[in-house]
């Protein structure tokens, strides 16, 4: 499974639009936002940590000391080894080994890969669906707006984790157990996206309502440009700021949701364990004193989510003109 590199998720369009997008982004980084970034050591630290984790996840086969997918490398004689610095630990296994002799550090790096893959895919899907829904809802208004926003209202009353759990439950009753193991990861991505799209839709709708009445949109309408083109080429670039903020904060939520689902045993299957799965497996050994199996993946998860949250908080403040 190749990790997908994420680019700003824009619908395919003309090269001109991309050039303009590039120019917008260029100005963006020369301006206030980058300045506020360079002035906040905590944000820089969060950024470095996040990037380091992305790097480790993408290049996991090269970064990790052992390939945990390669069953031949596992040796049951090496099972239950504590971390290297405690008595009985070995330098080869920095963070110890699990019940099957798997290196915990390597398992964490490969788990990070799954967690980030699921988190990113879920957020991108949610952002795509939510942005489209928000644009349609805000631009056209009327019954389209009414229907989309009523759905959003109903869904917003339920917490993300419950929606994801229910979608997962429905999917598992519909599929055979083999299909379940194969498609589980897609079900989780879908479940996460379904629980997150509302935030995007509501925000984009709000911004679209504001943009819709501005002169440039009115002018574009008068020239007779197709509404879809107006939405994609004129409104969309101007509502991307909030989308970026929500996407960052949603990534933290998505990673936590995935970890929680996996911990509950309804998430990604143990054949390719995510951080949540690792914590669940390690949890069974907590009482017998092998704390490292669950605590280290847990610490990794918290650091990742904390760093992403810090980045999101900073981005929200940096893009908020009120606080400048």
């Amino acid at each position: 499974m190749q990790p997908t590199r994420t680019s700003p998720d824009m619908p395919a369009s003309s090269p001109r639009m991309w050039r303009r997008f590039y120019e917008n982004t260029k100005g963006f980084f020369d301006g206030d936002v980058f300045y506020s970034f360079s002035r906040s050591p905590l944000t820089i630290l969060a950024f470095v940590i996040t990037m380091a984790m992305f790097f480790a996840a993408i290049f996991a086969p090269w970064v990790a000391p052992y390939d945990t997918y390669d069953l031949r490398s596992l040796n049951l004689m090496d099972a239950y080894k504590p971390p290297a610095w405690s008595p009985g630990g070995e330098a080869e296994y920095l963070l110890g080994t699990d019940d099957q002799g798997r290196d915990v550090l390597s398992a964490i790096i490969f788990g990070l890969r799954i967690s980030l893959l699921v988190g990113f895919s879920g957020v991108i899907l949610a952002a795509l669906v939510g942005t489209i829904m928000g644009l349609l809802s805000g631009y056209f208004g009327g019954w389209i707006d009414a229907v989309i926003m009523r759905i959003a209202d109903v869904q917003l009353t339920f917490p993300a984790i419950l929606i994801a759990l229910m979608i997962d439950g429905i999917a598992s009753t519909m599929m055979s157990s083999q299909a379940r193991a194969d498609f589980k990861i897609y079900v989780i991505i879908l479940a996460i996206a379904a629980s997150l799209w509302v935030n995007f839709a509501r925000t984009v709708r709000g911004s679209t309502l504001v943009e819709k009445n501005k002169e440039y949109v009115q002018a574009a309408k008068v020239i007779g440009i197709h509404p879809l083109l107006i939405m994609i080429r004129h409104v969309l670039p101007n509502v991307m700021g909030p989308v970026l903020v929500i996407a960052t904060l949603s990534l933290a939520v998505a990673i936590l949701t995935e970890a929680t689902l996996s911990f509950l045993g309804v998430g990604v299957p143990p054949t390719n364990p995510s951080l949540g799965t690792l914590i669940r497996i390690g949890n069974d050994f907590l009482f017998s004193g092998e704390w490292w199996m669950s605590i280290f993946p847990g610490v990794m998860l918290v650091i990742l989510v904390l760093a992403v949250n810090l980045l999101g908080d900073w981005l929200r403040d940096a893009l908020n003109p009120k606080l400048r």
Binding site: A252, L256, A259, T260, F263, L264, I279, N283, L286, F287, G289, W291, S294, I295, G298, L301, V302, V305, L306, N309
Partner: peptide, 20 residues
């Protein structure tokens, strides 16, 4: 930190500290 800690991890940590 509390906002970034998933509920199940808080539970595990409390069990580890007060239970084990």
């Amino acid at each position: 930190i509390g906002i970034s800690l998933p509920t199940f991890l808080i539970g595990i940590l409390l069990i580890l500290l007060f239970g084990v």
